[in-house]
Simulated assay, not measured.
Amino acid sequence: MVTIDIPLTQGVLLAGGLARRMGGGDKPMRTIGGRTILERVIARLKPQCSGLILNANGDPARFASFGLQVVADDVPGFPGPLAGILAALDWTAANRPGVEWVLSAAGDCPFLPRDLVARLHDARERENARLAVAASGGQSHPVIGLWHVALREELRHALVVEDLRKIDRWTARYPLATVNWPVEPLDPFFNANTVEDVAEAERLAALDDAP
């Protein structure tokens, strides 16, 4: 149960990957249950965040129909989701000066929990942690987490100077809260990485959309 007032939190949907296991293209643009994966992610997170942006590289016009600001990585070479998180921290510092927290989520997770932001903040506060990440089924999902804007220069140093790429290697440097969600009736952090995953997502969408 959430026991704190939830701070203003900027959301970022990470869609900067190259989707190699899908044969290229944007995974969040795949359709399941009659709606794109990205539509489903936006619908889950928009009510939980004070604003949403999309981290993606390449031509931003392909996402124009979603009405989100598209922010590209500012570290070259597709260094992974940490670069997207850094871009979001920088954008928030420049454009939302009253916001101290950024919530990152994968753009290919269509069933995200409706209490994601609240529970992460609650755990972070209770455990006096500087970061918080989600977990389910005994597996951590470090790409789905809360990041303090004030950490952006430390993250930039890790990416640019240390060439650090793995999120869990970076989060290990800080007090970290991990929040677990149940995986029944479905794993809220299921992500559509392969063509086979999209077929499974169709089945799960029928469960998720049921009244």
Score class of each variant (00 low, 15 high):
86 L>K: 01
23 G>V: 12
54 L>I: 04
128 N>W: 03
180 N>R: 12
125 E>W: 12
195 V>A: 15
194 T>S: 14
120 L>F: 08
177 A>T: 10
80 G>K: 07
63 F>C: 08
138 G>A: 13
40 R>W: 02
96 R>Q: 10
143 V>P: 04
28 P>I: 03
41 V>N: 00
172 A>C: 05
102 V>M: 07
134 A>L: 11
179 V>W: 05
140 S>T: 12
95 N>F: 01
46 K>L: 15
117 V>F: 03
36 T>Y: 05
144 I>K: 06
189 F>M: 05
197 D>S: 13
132 A>Y: 03
126 R>Q: 15
101 W>R: 12
176 L>Y: 04
30 R>P: 00
128 N>F: 05
210 A>S: 14
171 T>I: 12
136 S>K: 09
194 T>P: 10
22 M>R: 15
190 F>K: 07
126 R>W: 01
21 R>G: 00
104 S>P: 08
210 A>Y: 12
191 N>L: 12
23 G>M: 10
199 A>R: 12
139 Q>Y: 10
63 F>D: 06
198 V>F: 02
6 I>Q: 10
179 V>M: 08
177 A>I: 08
116 L>E: 03
192 A>D: 03
19 A>Y: 11
3 T>C: 10
24 G>V: 13
112 L>S: 01
91 W>T: 06
167 I>S: 07
150 A>F: 00
35 R>D: 07
154 E>H: 09
118 A>V: 08
151 L>Y: 11
42 I>M: 11
190 F>S: 07
152 R>V: 04
147 W>P: 09
39 E>D: 15
54 L>D: 04
156 R>C: 10
110 P>Q: 04
61 A>H: 09
142 P>L: 11
108 D>C: 05
144 I>D: 04
120 L>I: 08
114 R>L: 14
37 I>M: 04
40 R>M: 08
203 R>A: 10
109 C>R: 08
36 T>Q: 07
175 P>C: 04
131 L>Y: 06
